Amino acid sequence: MTKFPVYNICNISASSTPPDEDILVEDFAQYISRHYAKLNYPHRHAFYHVVLFTAGKGTHTIDFKTFPVVAGQAYFMIPGQVHGWQFEGKVEGYIINFSETFFKSFLLNSSYLDQFSFFSGNCDEGVIQLKGPLHKEGELLMNEMLKAAEGRPVHEDLIRVLLLRFLILADEASGKKVANSIPNQKVLTLKTFRNLIEKNYRLLKLPNEYAALMYITPHHLNALCQDLTGQTAGELIRDRVILEAKRLLVNEEMTAAEIAWNLNFKDASYFNRFFKKATGLTPFEFRKQIK
């Protein structure tokens, strides 16, 4: 079975420098000049991925949704998301890749990054436009991180501080400030639900099954999801199943029946109906469209 390539920080680092398993900060034009041949094809990362564009244009597709690239735009991606680039001419900016453990020895709160809406895995929330003073400050922070990364040894703690400042700045630009506007317990409950979906979406497809795992009522779970996301619990589960189905449909060697089996549907016809109801296309039509 063909799968999306999965890159880690070491196998995507500059060959002229010793690889670091936890952090990579680089000028975006240089990064692309080395990797564009493979990064324009859909792929996954095993790390957090942050990009700030300062010049150039093109498109960036994240989990089958395409965004235009413009100056001042910041992208935030979590491990496992699928994306690819298509640029028109030269682009400039900064890129930061960091591991899931990069902040864990630095912050007492191991789930600190969960407060940022742009790290939810929702591609719409992961694209933020920095304007005016925020754009200028964002560039300055990125440039300081680049300098810290070019030193030997790499000043990782300085990069951590600067990166946290950039994340807080982006949170301000997003206008959401989740941590300040929503009680922390609600945020943690939603995060727990999303983590459970990520681990169990192939086997569990009903809200009451997840509510039982969380020791809350299905009504409470549904109300919380609608309050924080505008979607029902069932819709969040469905969207994750559909996303995985789309990822698998890119692999042309897999038949619809094999994908249905992979996602634990009782048969291919039920999977086809489920997919068409959610997307308006049959699996075959979707596969043909993305070609």
Results as ranks from 00 to 15, higher is better:
E209T: 10
G175N: 10
E209N: 07
P183G: 05
L169R: 04
F119G: 01
A257H: 08
I96L: 13
Y270W: 04
V50K: 04
E156F: 14
L243W: 05
V25Y: 09
I216L: 07
Q226H: 05
N143T: 09
I168Y: 09
F64H: 12
V51E: 07
F64Y: 12
H45E: 03
K246V: 02
K136G: 00
E252T: 07
F271P: 13
A211C: 04
V127Q: 13
I159M: 14
P18W: 05
K276G: 01
R34L: 10
E198R: 02
T282H: 08
D124Y: 14
P19V: 03
E285H: 04
N122D: 12
S181K: 15
L224W: 03
K147M: 03
K277Q: 06
V91P: 05
I237R: 07
V250Q: 06
Y112T: 12
L164I: 06
A245T: 08
M1G: 11
F53T: 11
L236T: 01
I182D: 02
L236A: 08
C225D: 03
R194W: 02
L248W: 11
Q226D: 01
H219M: 10
R34G: 04
M254A: 09
D20P: 01
T282C: 04
Y94A: 00
V127I: 15
P183C: 01
W85T: 00
L158A: 10
K291L: 12
A245W: 03
V70Y: 11
N262E: 15
G151S: 14
L134Q: 13
V25N: 04
S269G: 01
K276E: 06
Y31H: 09
A223M: 07
E285A: 12
L24T: 11
D114V: 11
I128A: 10
F119A: 04
F103D: 08
L263H: 10
F47S: 13
D124I: 12
V154P: 00
P183R: 15
M1R: 09
E139R: 08
V250I: 02
I237C: 07
T255D: 05
F284S: 06
H60E: 08
F103E: 04
T101Q: 11
Y7W: 14
L213M: 10
G72Y: 03
